[in-house]
Design a protein around this nucleic acid. Structure first.
Lengths: 328, 328
DNA sequence: ATGAAAGCGCTAACAT
DNA sequence: ATGTTAGCGCTTTCAT
């Protein structure tokens, strides 16, 4: 009886646990090598939060692979073999991942996904951008600026949940608020530059009245180039995704109206936080952690590009001798 | 010699420190009672982060005052008398605060400001929204939608740094990107509804060609009402600040084009984090912690209003005793 | 003043 | 298997 009661509201003292336990948590970070800076930022966010939260008992193991596909599998296998305590990953090919599901499940290795979900795979949580808000923002912006006309959307592949969701929110918003606008079937570029260029060119040729394009993938530059080469850039409203130097240039020059920033650093931070909490506390995060996108236009493009050091500065390693709070 | 070397790369083990120390940190949260939900959200963010970070050695003391002015001073005095280890505050009247500067400085009580800076007051850091990005966003949105015309801006008072900065960014953006637009002298509403209504009405009467209004304060409803009463609401582009139910309604109905959400919860979280880290680690935060504003339009208004539980889930245990200070 | 010793609440290695 | 004990790195108290 008493034991029961005691057990119910018993909370282990984490400080004591850290102190006594020699064990260090090994967390594997399986992500894609940065094509643009997106993944570098995600990793930076993870490191940041790790340093902030950690009471020096966690070790990050970065398994960064250059391409989707087998090197991704290799990273997974290697992590499992190494006996890591948790995995934080970018799931690119859900089918392959299922092979590992049993293993992670059997060994009770918690899994957190960043940026994209892998439907059907058991995981602790997924951290991603709010796709509805993204699609909506792009649509309302275009709608307000154009009022009517034909617009297009590009995505990696209709099968990527996140992209499909953005597309759906985009189309739905346009339909309900701007009935005089219509959306073409999505272009699928598979993150391949030439494919994006080709398909965009063809689309523009087929629809000389095209008024806007919403690019949900990272390959926005080829889309812009196609429009420019065909001489229609000036009359297109282009809304893109993410932010990197080449794109910032186009934004500042007015070629791109706005971009929807997916806050990679914060995604990394949140993902690590969720995994760490689970490992340390046993507490479950929400099933999905969704971030509000930031709208970037020419005025604030630069402030987003420069390292958003975000929260804390370096721990100087000094004893807390409260040395007066001076303002320099 | 050896001592020196040792001291230099010595890093105290925080876990051990928490464990052994009986001391609990007392942090006073001096904020304004919520007129809208802004301050409630800030406090929620503080609580959230506190529960998340805390290894049960911190105690929050909320000193919430109904009005600016003397009750604010009282809260400050009470906190200092109580011997708190740190204060997290909304500085409404910088002049008064200076009286306490000496005291906090003398007793080495670190001070963190939220939402607004108090220039000239020594503090650990200030957490606030990115005013430039806010003003810019409002301006570029209006510029893109209107192209030309006369627009106005309302603020609490020209003397509030944050408001002045927003106004400046707004005007500067308009001037450089949309030379055919012009900005009226700012309306100062001092957060008083009747004042906002009066002055807006007068402005509209004086400038029948007014095309847009950027409201940087929380009193956007009276501005909308004035425009509606004078029958010009339909042709005005209105961009507001913050978000609360009554405003969300106006956004969804199209009266307000967009609002710039200042992320009160995140402001609270960041502020607490900075103060806590300093208290525990001795590490100094950046001088200013600036958050990117969120653009809210009719499609995503609801998702912002519903409690953004943000990061973590529940921490079940309860802290022992709260001294005579009320919880929010 | 300065230094030695006793815990803080756990885990891990030991003994039964 | 179960119970006991040493000790993690600090702070605090107690003795010198």
């Amino acid at each position: 009886m008493l034991k029961m009661a005691k057990k119910l509201d018993y909370r282990p003292n984490l400080a004591a646990r850290y102190l006594s336990s020699k064990r260090t948590l090994h967390i594997s970070i399986n992500t894609l090598q940065g094509k643009t800076s997106f993944w570098d930022e995600v990793r930076a966010g993870i490191q940041e939060e790790s340093r902030f939260l950690d009471l020096e008992n966690v070790e990050l193991e970065f398994r960064t692979y250059p391409h989707l596909g087998e090197s991704e599998d290799a990273a997974f296998e290697s992590a499992i073999k190494a006996g890591v305590d948790g995995i934080l990953a970018f799931p690119s090919s859900p089918q392959n991942l299922k092979k590992f599901m049993r293993q992670t499940a059997a060994r009770e290795i918690p899994l957190v996904f960043v940026a994209t979900d892998a439907p059907g795979v058991a995981k602790l949580t997924v951290v991603s951008i709010d796709t509805k808000a993204s699609g909506f923002l792009a649509a309302d912006l275009m709608g307000r600026l154009l009022g009517k006309g034909r617009v297009a959307i590009t995505m990696f592949d209709k099968k990527i949940t996140e992209h499909a969701e953005k597309g759906e929110a985009f189309a739905r918003t346009l339909k309900s608020y701007y009935p005089e606008m219509c959306v073409e079937d999505p272009i699928e570029d598979h993150d391949i530059e030439s494919e994006a260029y080709e398909k965009t060119s063809r689309l523009i040729a087929a629809h000389p009245d095209l008024a806007g394009i919403y690019v949900t993938t990272e390959v926005s530059i080829p889309v812009i180039k196609a429009a420019r080469d065909l001489g229609v850039l000036d009359r297109l409203v282009i809304v893109t995704t993410d932010l990197f130097p080449a794109l910032a240039k186009e934004i500042k020059e007015g070629a791109v109206t706005a971009t929807i920033y997916q806050r990679p650093r914060t995604q990394g931070r949140m993902a690590f936080r969720a995994l760490y909490e689970y490992l340390v506390d046993g507490s479950f995060p929400r099933r999905r952690i969704t971030l509000a996108p930031h709208l970037v236009m020419r005025g604030n493009a630069d402030s987003f590009l420069q390292q958003d050091t975000s929260d804390l500065n370096e721990g100087e390693g000094e004893v807390a001798e409260f040395s007066g709070v001076a303002e320099p």
